[in-house]
């Protein structure tokens, strides 16, 4: 069979794998919904959470489609479709493909059409290098969660603080990341201000939502505050970039 990066059989295999990725998510969703019902959790609240999680996901998911399109030029459509539907990212797949091709004495982006051997080599490197999380979660998840339960039994207040500290630790790393090009501002380069201003717009949107909720007592605003701050923040990047970029 003659190989092509867009051969229909590749789409068929990838389609089958993606079907199981979807099936796993649906399986856990159904089980969690059933458990929520058993626990007597408010159905309306659960429905609102499903709606806001869906809205919140749209913009980042569209950005993933942009990455699929960008990678499709060199890798075909089927492989980026698979890799970005499972654990992977634009930067990771590019690094893995670059390293695999470099090992064969080639340069990523400069191969007119990959042959089957090159394609398979790239897929092996991508797959093996990022497999850790998938098998390590089954090894560690129960042990770590049991450790947290024991911590709660010993000192419930400290567990609350511990978990807040984990969230804050992660958020602080991303706040720092937003300022990673900020030092250029001291030299008169304004591009480093773009992410800072976008973050500020998003933060202000969230504050406005919070104030509106308090003033109007409209609880529904809380359901859409996070998706709204994300989308308004992203939209603000367009004029801010044309101004400072």
């Amino acid at each position: 069979m003659n190989f092509s990066v867009n051969h229909p059989i590749l789409f068929l295999i990838v389609g089958i794998i993606i079907f199981f990725v979807l099936a796993q998510s649906v399986f856990f969703l159904v089980k969690a919904l059933k458990r929520a019902k058993e626990l007597g959790m408010d159905t309306k609240k659960i429905r609102k959470i499903i709606i806001s999680a869906s809205i919140f996901t749209i913009a980042p998911a569209v950005a993933i489609v942009v990455s699929v399109i960008a990678l499709a030029k060199d890798l075909g459509i089927a492989l980026p479709w698979l890799r970005l539907s499972v654990v992977g990212s634009m930067s990771y797949e590019t690094i893995a493909a670059t390293n695999a091709l470099s090992g064969m004495g080639l340069e990523f982006g400069k191969v007119a059409e990959l042959n089957a051997t090159q394609f398979v080599t790239i897929v092996f490197v991508m797959t093996i290098s990022i497999m850790v999380g998938i098998w390590l979660v089954p090894v560690l998840c129960k042990k770590m969660k049991t450790g947290l339960v024991n911590m709660k039994k010993k000192d419930a207040k400290w567990l609350d603080i511990f978990q807040s500290a984990m969230f804050i630790g992660m958020i602080s790393a991303f706040v720092g990341f937003v300022f990673c090009d900020f030092s250029g501002v001291f030299k008169g380069q304004t591009q480093g201000l773009i992410p800072v201003l976008v973050m500020a717009v998003s933060a202000v949107t969230m504050l406005i939502c919070g104030a509106l909720m308090k003033l109007t007592k409209a609880r529904w605003i809380n359901d859409y505050a996070l998706p709204a701050s994300l989308i308004i923040g992203m939209a603000s990047a367009i004029p801010i970039t044309s101004w400072l970029g």
């Binding site: 913009a59 980042p60 950005a63 958020i171 991303f174 706040v175 990341f177 937003v178 773009i194 992410p195 800072v196 976008v198 973050m199 500020a200 717009v201 998003s202 933060a203 949107t205 969230m206 505050a225 996070l226 709204a228 701050s229 994300l230 989308i231 308004i232 923040g233 992203m234 603000s236 990047a237 970039t241």
Partner: peptide, 11 residues
């Protein structure tokens, strides 16, 4: 600018 837009509100 997805990440700055995301962590502004969440932050």
């Amino acid at each position: 600018q997805i990440l700055p837009a995301l962590f502004g509100g969440l932050g």
